[in-house]
């Protein structure tokens, strides 16, 4: 009897371990945000958020991490131009007008969770407030 119980406990613990390994492999708890990021942002900012030298800013070390302005940038885009000797390069981040406050919250949480070392979850209310201010 005790042998059977022993066996059961072993199997149970083994199963638990397997499940926890599977879940820990899904590295981010913000899967919706990750999906949106991969579909809309990763093309330029790269999957790992590293950007492209000075041409496309890295999100990993962005000053906007953890700040409400990040919602405004997503919603309204950013236009920045590098000038030199009568020529210029436009660095433009398109505006993602189509994103709802929920979607922005998901992306912001994914990005912050991935690269902001002092991560704090952002709520939809906070994002809505931020969007109201930036408009």
């Amino acid at each position: 009897m005790t042998k059977g119980l022993n066996h059961f406990i072993k199997c149970f613990l083994g199963g638990l371990l397997t499940i926890s390994v599977i879940f820990s492999c899904n590295d981010s708890p913000y899967m919706q945000g990750k999906r949106l990021y991969l579909a809309n942002c990763a093309n330029c900012h790269m999957e790992d958020g590293s950007g492209l030298s000075a041409l496309i800013p890295s999100i990993q070390k962005s000053v906007y991490l953890g700040k409400p302005e990040i919602a405004c940038i997503l919603k309204n885009g950013l236009r920045d131009t590098i000038f030199k000797d009568s020529t210029f390069l436009v660095r433009e981040m398109p505006a993602f007008k189509k994103f709802s406050a929920t979607e922005i919250t998901n992306i912001v949480n994914f990005v912050n969770h991935s690269w902001n070392t002092s991560f704090k979850e952002t709520t939809i209310t906070q994002i809505e407030e931020a969007i109201n201010i930036c408009q």
Partner: peptide
């Protein structure tokens, strides 16, 4: 993409 723009691009790519 004229010569100047390509130079600027290359510079910013580092």
């Amino acid at each position: 993409d004229d010569v100047k723009k390509l130079r600027l691009y290359a510079d910013n790519l580092g």
